Amino acid sequence: MNGEQPGLLEGAIPPERNTVLYGHDSAQEFLATAYRSGRMHHAILIEGAEGIGKATLAYRFAHHVLTHPDPLDAPDHIADPDLDDPVGRQISSGASHHVLHLARPVDEKTGKAKSVITVDEVRRAGKFFGQTSGTGNWRVAIIDPADDLNRNAANAILKILEEPPKRSLFLVLSHTPGRLLPTIRSRCLSLKLQALSPPDLDRALAHLGAAPGETDAIIRLSEGSVARALLLRNYGGVDIAEAFVDILERGNLNDREPIYKLAETLSARDRDVAYDFFTGFAVDRVQQMAREAGAAGDLAEADRLARMSATLAEHFATAAAYNLDRKQTVLHVFSIFFG
């Protein structure tokens, strides 16, 4: 019931086709045990930073459930999916009638994903559960991520969660669960995933084709996220990140050349992915600086930086909402820092 996700990063494997998962053994053990008990919650909120494996975990669990429809006969672990068996083949090809992937739909005019998951997408869930209700098998809906639900879509999902169909399972993915409706969170069992450790991230990147010794700088900057690592590796992210950090360390606007060079780079045509990487990296970097200041006991500086990260996030959100000029958006970032 789902095709390849729009916006898939270069070098990434679509979650429904990924046969390995690194760094989340305890989460997999928890899901396998909960399912085998026969008393599993009907909705699991899988929380964690973007790009750490939430969607891959969801598809692995869907494969596990559909391969072992009787919980009491299910194994106590989640095995790597076999994409050549009937269940794996159907899921990986998007042809399974028992798995629904709800994500931001593609705008037919632009060919790009829309900014939100609409209520029309959620209505597909009603049809999905209605069409498969007589089969007796499990039906798994993966909401990826639920952060993108607009208000009407969120309310529509909430109604289904309040009265879930029999043998239904909702895997609700969220990068920032605080953005979800509290009523949605309250109807889900929370499963928090941690960022990948450097060894696990190294293994994940090797699985995606990275050569030994290639990933040292990438791992240092990626904060345990495979998605961020791919942005750093394949979209010039290392240069962007290092240029941004270098400008911050200079501490003033006197030398404008590197600032304008970075703004020109990010505002060039066909640099959408690089620009999106920068907006996320800039906010995260300031948040990290705030944490470091707090750990060092400088609470005033930690508070200043925390407020600055919120200002940056609002600045980028406003620029995106009103399609503001990217060069000016980037230049204003440094006015926020040094103005």
Results as ranks from 00 to 15, higher is better:
148 D>G: 09
182 P>E: 01
133 S>H: 12
74 A>W: 05
113 A>W: 04
189 L>R: 14
156 A>R: 11
79 A>W: 07
74 A>Q: 04
133 S>A: 13
70 D>H: 06
150 N>R: 13
175 H>T: 10
182 P>D: 03
146 A>S: 13
173 L>H: 02
100 L>P: 14
81 P>L: 00
121 E>I: 15
143 I>W: 03
126 G>I: 12
156 A>S: 14
95 A>C: 13
120 D>E: 13
148 D>R: 10
114 K>P: 09
119 V>Q: 13
86 P>C: 07
97 H>E: 12
96 S>Y: 03
111 G>K: 10
151 R>Q: 14
143 I>Y: 03
137 N>A: 11
109 K>N: 08
124 R>N: 15
189 L>Q: 15
117 I>S: 08
65 V>A: 01
71 P>R: 06
125 A>H: 06
130 G>H: 14
133 S>R: 08
103 A>R: 15
108 E>Q: 11
172 V>G: 01
132 T>I: 09
138 W>I: 02
136 G>L: 12
128 F>K: 02
130 G>L: 05
120 D>R: 14
181 L>N: 06
164 P>G: 11
90 Q>V: 02
98 H>S: 09
180 L>I: 02
73 D>W: 00
97 H>K: 14
113 A>P: 03
127 K>C: 06
188 C>F: 03
120 D>W: 04
115 S>P: 13
